[in-house]
Nucleic acid binder design. Structure first.
Lengths: 143, 143
DNA sequence: AATATAAATGCAATTTAATTGCATTTATAT
DNA sequence: ATATAAATGCAATTAAATTGCATTTATATT
């Protein structure tokens, strides 16, 4: 995914710092979501733990990043599609969480709407499929 | 939900201890899922923290309890429908996570199947809707 | 270009959550 | 009644997240 960190920051009136740029760059490297621990490992020498927490929180609040929880309660981050805004994350696509490599993919599959029971009003719906991803399926076949 | 802890334990060849019975009873009290911190608060004087962790893990492994992660990465537990077994949780219903009271409901809405992209094989699909639950909607109207 | 200032960062310290090891207790098969 | 294998509780450890504060940095203004 090609992104323009400087533009994104300006768009949300956030100060342009090298730490904020690095975080965006790192997350944009891959189409799959990256986990908090992975990010920490990759950026730990450049960016303080606490700063990373704060940057991720701000990005989530602003709708720049999209946070997906995996089965272990670990936060994973991906760049939001441009349709996301501060008050409403458009999560109506499927997340595929590979139980082998633990990667989380944002699939371009639209989730069919299900109607809520009377009294319940849903704002966002998040769907996660657990299974084996493309890459891991290929690896298994080879062995 | 009416459950028979003794029977459930026997069914899964688990030893019958008062702690295990208490945990099942407590969780069965309500149809909504209960969070780990809530359980700890309720049972903290009867059951040791560590024991609670272990019991919950075993129950999840055996398919007795169903663990649902909320947005904060907090584990919530509900009794599994009888269709769940050790190797396969049947989660193909919707969880409704109220953003006001934070309760998680297991709704009796069947999720329409979406087909996975080529190469991806899904084993379970979990859908969570975020919004305002029945009770909280009523409260809001009153004010 | 210099500078004022408001915000972001990094570090230390703290708080909270989860895990591990081990001695004691308990359930159950004989 | 008792042997034994498993479960529990406690203490200690490890890991994760948060808070407070001094220092640094970005940017608006002169």
């Amino acid at each position: 995914m090609k992104i323009d960190p400087t533009h994104i920051l300006k768009e949300h009136s956030l100060k342009h710092t090298k730490q904020r740029v690095r975080v965006l760059e790192e997350i944009a490297l891959d189409t799959v979501a990256i986990s908090q621990p992975e990010l920490e490992k990759k950026l730990g020498k450049e960016i303080d733990r606490v700063t990373l927490y704060r940057i991720l929180n701000i990005y989530e609040d602003k709708g720049i990043l999209h946070r997906i929880m995996d089965m272990n309660g670990t936060a994973n981050y991906a760049i939001c599609s441009s349709a996301c805004s501060e008050d409403h994350h458009h999560d109506e696509h499927i997340h595929f969480n590979c139980t082998n490599c633990h990667k989380i993919y944002c699939l371009d599959v639209v989730v069919p709407h299900s109607t809520m029971p009377k009294g319940f009003t849903a704002k966002t719906v998040s769907t996660t499929a657990y299974g084996i991803c493309e890459k891991c399926n290929l690896l298994v076949k080879k062995n």
